[in-house]
Deep mutational scan, measured.
Amino acid sequence: MIINNLKLIREKKKISQSELAALLESSRQTINGIEKNKYNPSLQLALKIAYYLNTPLEDIFQWQ
């Protein structure tokens, strides 16, 4: 199971779900699903999230 700190990191950087979704060329619903652990992002999307949040991938997503 993958757990994530996306919501915590996103809020700390003062970025809304909609703003992050626009940067990622994704939907706000996708970001919401990832944050609620209802959806696991593809590797490509996970890497883009890490890039746009300027945060190491392993700080956002962790195996448990």
Rank of each mutant, 00 (worst) to 15 (best):
N32V: 13
D59F: 10
W63G: 02
N54M: 10
M1F: 08
L23G: 09
W63P: 03
K48Q: 11
D59A: 10
Q17P: 03
Q29F: 09
L8T: 15
M1G: 04
I49D: 00
R28F: 09
L53T: 01
G33M: 15
D59T: 08
S16C: 06
E35W: 02
A46V: 04
A50K: 01
P56H: 07
T55A: 07
K12P: 01
R28Y: 12
K36M: 15
K38T: 13
Q64K: 13
G33D: 15
I15S: 02
S18A: 13
Q44P: 11
L47G: 06
P41L: 06
E58F: 11
K38L: 14
K14R: 11
M1N: 04
S18M: 12
Q17G: 04
T30K: 10
K36I: 11
I9M: 07
Q62E: 08
W63L: 05
L47F: 09
I49V: 05
N54Y: 06
I9T: 04
N4R: 02
K38F: 13
D59S: 09
N40G: 11
S16G: 07
Y51M: 11
A46M: 09
A21Y: 01
L6K: 00
L57N: 02
K7F: 07
R10M: 07
Q62G: 08
K12G: 11
L24A: 12
T55R: 03
K48N: 07
L23K: 11
Q44C: 15
S26I: 15
L53F: 07
I34Q: 02
L57T: 03
L47D: 05
I3A: 08
A22R: 14
L6V: 04
L43Y: 14
N32I: 14
Q64S: 14
L23Y: 13
L53M: 05
T30R: 08
E58M: 09
I31P: 01
K14M: 10
K38H: 12
L24T: 15
L6T: 02
T30N: 05
A50V: 04
I31N: 02
S18N: 12
Y52K: 05
P41K: 02
A21D: 01
A21G: 05
K14C: 12
L57D: 00
L45V: 06
L24N: 01
I49H: 00
Q17K: 07
W63T: 03
L45R: 00
G33S: 15
K12E: 13
L20N: 04
E19V: 09
I15L: 12
L57H: 02
L23A: 15
N40I: 15
A21I: 05
I2G: 04
N32W: 08
L23R: 09
E19N: 11
K38N: 12
Q62W: 06
E19T: 12
I60K: 04
K7R: 12
I60P: 02
L8Q: 14
L20R: 01
K7P: 02
F61Y: 01
W63V: 04
L57E: 01
A46S: 06
I60M: 06
K12F: 09
R28D: 11
Q44L: 09
L45A: 03
Q62H: 06
T55N: 03
N40D: 07
W63M: 05
I34E: 01
L45P: 00
L8C: 15
R28H: 11
P41N: 04
E11Q: 11
E19S: 11
T55L: 05
I9Q: 03
S27P: 12
A22Y: 12
S16W: 05
K13H: 12
L6F: 01
K13F: 10
S18P: 06
I31H: 04
L57S: 03
A46P: 03
P56L: 05
L45N: 01
N32G: 08
K48F: 04
E25S: 13
Y39Q: 10
L8P: 09
Q62V: 14
A22N: 12
S27D: 15
D59M: 10
E11L: 11
L47T: 11
I31C: 04
L20H: 00
A22H: 13
Q44A: 13
P41M: 04
L20A: 00
L20T: 00
K7Q: 11
L57F: 05
I31T: 01
L23M: 14
F61V: 02
Q17Y: 06
Q29A: 14
I2H: 09
L23F: 12
N4T: 04
K36D: 13
N4V: 08
R10K: 00
L47M: 13
I3S: 08
Q64T: 12
K12C: 12
K13A: 11
K7S: 07
T30D: 07
E11D: 08
I49G: 00
I15N: 01
Q62D: 04
E35L: 05
Y51T: 08
K36W: 07
L43F: 12
Q44M: 09
I15F: 08
L8F: 11
K14N: 14
R28E: 15
Q44N: 12
Q64L: 05
I9S: 01
L24V: 15
K48G: 06
K38C: 14
T30L: 15
I60D: 00
K13T: 06
E19W: 07
L8A: 14
L6W: 00
G33C: 15
K48P: 00
Q17E: 04
I60F: 09
L23P: 00
L45D: 03
R28N: 09
N54P: 04
L45Y: 06
E19A: 13
L43E: 06
I3C: 12
L43T: 07
L53D: 01
S42K: 06
Y52V: 15
Q29P: 06
L24W: 02
N40K: 14
A22Q: 12
N54A: 12
E58V: 09
G33L: 15
T30A: 08
A21T: 03
A22I: 13
K48C: 08
N37I: 02
K36S: 14
N4K: 00
P56E: 08
E35I: 05
I60H: 00
N40E: 14
W63Q: 04
W63I: 04
I2K: 11
K36G: 10
Q29G: 11
A50D: 03
K38W: 14
N54I: 06
A22C: 14
P56V: 05
D59G: 09
S16F: 04
Y51V: 07
I9N: 01
N54D: 15
N32E: 15
L6R: 01
I60A: 01
I34S: 02
K38M: 14
L6D: 02
E35H: 02
A50Y: 05
K14D: 09
K14G: 15
I9V: 11
P56N: 09
N54S: 13
A50M: 03
E58K: 12
K7L: 08
N54W: 05
E11I: 11
Q29D: 14
R28C: 14
K7V: 06
K36Q: 15
F61L: 02
S27A: 05
G33Y: 14
N5I: 06
L20K: 00
S18K: 13
S27K: 10
L20E: 02
I15P: 01
